[in-house]
Nucleic acid binder design. Sequence first.
DNA 1: CTTATTATGTTAGGCAAGTTAACAAAAAAA
DNA 2: TTTTTTTGTTAACTTGCCTAACATAATAAG
Lengths: 388, 388
Amino acid sequence: MRPPFESSPAGSLTASAKSIFRLLAEGDPSTRPQLGEALNLSRPTMSAAIAELEQLGLVAKIGEVQGLIGRKAAIYRPGPTAGHVIAIDAGSTHVRLRVSTIDRRLLHSRVYRLPASQLLLGEEISRAVAEEVAATLTETDPGWGPLRMIGIAVPSRVVGPQGDRSATRQEEIFSCFEPPANVPVVLENNVNCAAVAERSYGIAKDSETFAYVQIGLKIGMGLMLGGRLLRGRNGAAGEIGHLAFPMADGSKPIAGEIERYMGTEGFMQRVVAAWPEPSGKAPADAADLMARAGEGCATALAHVTRHAEDIGAIVASCVSVADPGLVVLGGGMGGSPLLMPTVSEVANRLSYPVEVRTSTLGQDATVLGIEKLACEQTVDLLLGESRD
Amino acid sequence: MRPPFESSPAGSLTASAKSIFRLLAEGDPSTRPQLGEALNLSRPTMSAAIAELEQLGLVAKIGEVQGLIGRKAAIYRPGPTAGHVIAIDAGSTHVRLRVSTIDRRLLHSRVYRLPASQLLLGEEISRAVAEEVAATLTETDPGWGPLRMIGIAVPSRVVGPQGDRSATRQEEIFSCFEPPANVPVVLENNVNCAAVAERSYGIAKDSETFAYVQIGLKIGMGLMLGGRLLRGRNGAAGEIGHLAFPMADGSKPIAGEIERYMGTEGFMQRVVAAWPEPSGKAPADAADLMARAGEGCATALAHVTRHAEDIGAIVASCVSVADPGLVVLGGGMGGSPLLMPTVSEVANRLSYPVEVRTSTLGQDATVLGIEKLACEQTVDLLLGESRD
DNA sequence: CTTATTATGTTAGGCAAGTTAACAAAAAAA
DNA sequence: TTTTTTTGTTAACTTGCCTAACATAATAAG
């Protein structure tokens, strides 16, 4: 056993102190009266709990605020012992990194664009992550407190202890990158991370149950049910690229065929093949197609609409299984407002009532999501409470 | 406000007393030492808690047991105040009714076979339920304690307060049946109930996450995630009859088409249409087909295997969305052991690792499931703790 | 048949974590 | 300067659990 302090500086905090810390870690700094009100704690209890937390450095007073009348109220936020986390979106085109306190005050950030030639090469990504982390560590300010956690969003399945680990690419991220000793690492699928971000900061802030559907190079889904991510036994929940397809009387489905059919590449191949002479040169890529559709090109718009119908059918399948009530569209294509109406129309026609919204968080969704997860994990660790 | 005693005779029980009651309601009667051991409660705490519960009649001593040596240990189980529940499977062919204590000791049971001509007529079912409940109430024994809850499993979606209530048939059950005053009613979809039963008593006892797929007249799924049913915004989670189908390049999916294609009726139509002259008379119904397949009839077996492949594809779709790790096959056709191997092979080929098992609970699965749910609800109510 | 051993249950006393009530401190309003 | 209002602290009490010690009821041993 390690010394208990290292993993959990707050081994034996009172329940009230824990709940106060949790609330402060959640977001905005708060005054004592606000905290007491929110948590239904009496003023004496607040005094005792804050004293406990301040003693450990888990909480610090950052000022006072004057109401209309009466004594000033003290304002608190997580203190230096609470430390900071590194969140990394290890995507196939970019590596995005954010360093922040556990109440998500940004301390540092960097973006590294991978050479296009190395798309999807796991080793290159791992090397980039290693370099960015190393560079970050040299700039660490002692005022940030200890590094508590590194969160990494990866574009592959992430399995828990009981799943089929062999078939994942999740370990590739460590091929060239070794995390600093004694700093735990949280891995999470990038689509799931985006779902978390939509839930915490984005268009799904008001819903604790919804499906985030990413449509871009590949397609994938993140299922948020009652505020919790559904990961599945093999980390494969939401791998809708594997929906049975084609599925029709007589034909036999092929594994992963939907991904090939619906991904940007397969889609654009069909678009280019079907592009009529009179409409001019076929679009160079998906972004080009979307731009032309947005400008009113009828041919482009027809293709986009056709694609949206396919997406609507897939969304209907997801609704038929999980009935989330809300679907958020995101990703390279999914982020376009052109898709939403058709997707919504088709999904609602084929299945049960769903609201369809378009993501508002841009490319930062994934980093923000993994940051959120890393912070949550850190709080659990500090308070000695591990969630599942 | 009603008097608090009626809804919750245990308004202010200590946490330890609540946990003891919960454990006793769970199942087998237990001795004090066993309970204390299981719940990590000291003997003095046990004394106090049992005294509280016994006072209210929520718990009763039913005997003593002698170990190898030492004093006898007292055995307890839920007492008369805990009361009893009525569980009803309001199916389209049978109405099954069970009366039991909240620790699920059967007090009374009856089965009513609906006239075949009235299949699916909601009003007839409602009338049958009303009659069976009335008949049951006349036989109630005062020793059973108060009737705490009526649970009804219905073959339709069941929506919560925020869902789209208009499109459900859930209210039909009350067209001719009015529950006794002051007795709360729990409605639940019959497939979900079967899933609960498999989880509590059946083949999925060891798994808190799995999908129950019912294949019979209609097809449906119950999703158990982390020990909790996934119901969905519109109570439509698991309505896999609405998976997008046919889904292939060029063809447009039709709402609910899978149900027509995969249900017993559609399936048997195809079987009969394709039945070759030399194999003799076409099978009369699905049971006949299954019987012949079991006896080695190659034609019958080929049809069954083909059907199992289709089911495998659907299971693969569910796995791709929820990745439950375990799928239990049940229902009229699904209960046959002939299907499992092919379903498993196809599902695993098309998607991620899933274990496929065949249901062991027969036609009682649904009643047992709604009974379990009614008992859980009752315990929550008695302890003044409502879950979601 | 008495005595030792052991498991069960109760009594006494203590502690942790909250509460309410009353008081002290710090600010604006009268 | 005094009053009023909000914030924070101190004192005393309550609840719900605990441990330690004792009482009870059974078998095992002498």
